[in-house]
């Protein structure tokens, strides 16, 4: 009954997987190699082995006054961390509100969120820009953080997770024990939701870290810009005159932290994709 699998099929599978993995890794390999070489070495052509200029390139990048990368890293960290915290907390709160309480508009609210689940934010960008300008919030990090309170896709993930893992009798029990509604949410519900929160925190952090469209429109002051905007300025008119070692190093600075986080948490991330997926 257990027919032996045809080895040809397995060999083909391995070859295809190796080619695809090579494709995925090769470009990052070049990135790392090239960020360790000098401009002159880079101009001579490609080499498979790293050069000795890694630290000098890094120092040049960190000291570049026209592209304040240290500020960029700090701004990106502030925004991404705040967004990850806010998205997970408020999405769980909203999901809990609809999951645990019966009220007249419950069904309508759920239907509404589902209807806007995958609506692109770009369609309201014009009004959004005018609104935050009117509020005096343009050229600050706030407009990148506050709107994430309303994140339909994370809400949906949290709601699904509650349906499978949060028993309403537990909430009843905590009420009988005299816990207030917010207390129940913060002390009972949130700890139960920890796995879901962890997965979504990672994804929203990465999504926010990589976000380019809205930040580029909102922020104009150099020192307030996030990493993707700074990377984009590399591609300006003076691209050809840049020190290429520095260019590669800047790209590496933007990419490598995420790769490191990913490799450390890859098991949870890959499993999390199938559960809820990424949505920037």
């Amino acid at each position: 009954m257990n027919k032996k699998p045809t080895p040809i099929r397995e060999i083909v599978a391995h070859i295809v997987l190796i080619i695809l993995s090579f494709l995925c890794l090769f470009f990052f390999y070049i990135l790392i190699i090239n960020s360790s070489r000098t401009h002159v070495e880079l101009m001579k052509g490609f080499a498979a082995l790293p050069g000795g200029n890694l630290m000098i390139n890094l120092k040049n990048v960190l000291n570049d006054a026209t592209i304040p990368i240290v500020n960029g890293i700090i701004n990106s960290l502030i925004v991404s961390t705040s967004v990850a915290a806010i998205v997970t907390y408020f999405s769980a709160l909203t999901a809990y509100g609809l999951y645990a309480y019966r009220f007249r508009l419950n069904k309508a609210a759920f239907t509404f969120i589902m209807a806007i689940l995958v609506m692109p934010t770009q369609v309201t960008a014009l009004g959004f820009l005018r609104l935050i300008t009117g509020m005096g919030m343009n050229d600050s990090l706030w407009p990148l953080i506050i709107p994430s309170i309303a994140s339909p896709s994370v809400f949906y993930f949290m709601h699904s997770y509650m349906q499978s893992s949060l028993s309403l009798s537990l909430i009843e029990a905590s009420r009988i024990d005299g816990s207030g509604e917010f207390g129940t949410f913060n002390k009972i519900v949130l700890p139960i939701m920890r796995p879901a929160i962890a997965v979504q925190a990672i994804f929203t952090f990465v999504g926010s870290w990589n976000n380019y469209f809205v930040p580029a429109l909102v922020i104009s002051t150099k020192t307030k810009q996030t990493l993707p905007i700074l990377i984009a300025t590399l591609r300006g008119a003076d691209f050809m005159t840049q020190d290429m070692g520095k260019v590669y190093m800047m790209i590496a600075v933007a990419i490598v932290p995420i790769i490191v986080i990913y490799l450390l948490l890859s098991k949870y991330i890959v499993d999390g994709v199938a559960l809820g997926g990424v949505k920037e």
Partner: peptide, 12 residues
């Protein structure tokens, strides 16, 4: 490995 590029900053 095949999921890795999904997390990379698209602009970078």
């Amino acid at each position: 490995v095949i999921y890795l590029p999904n997390l990379i900053m698209a602009s970078a």
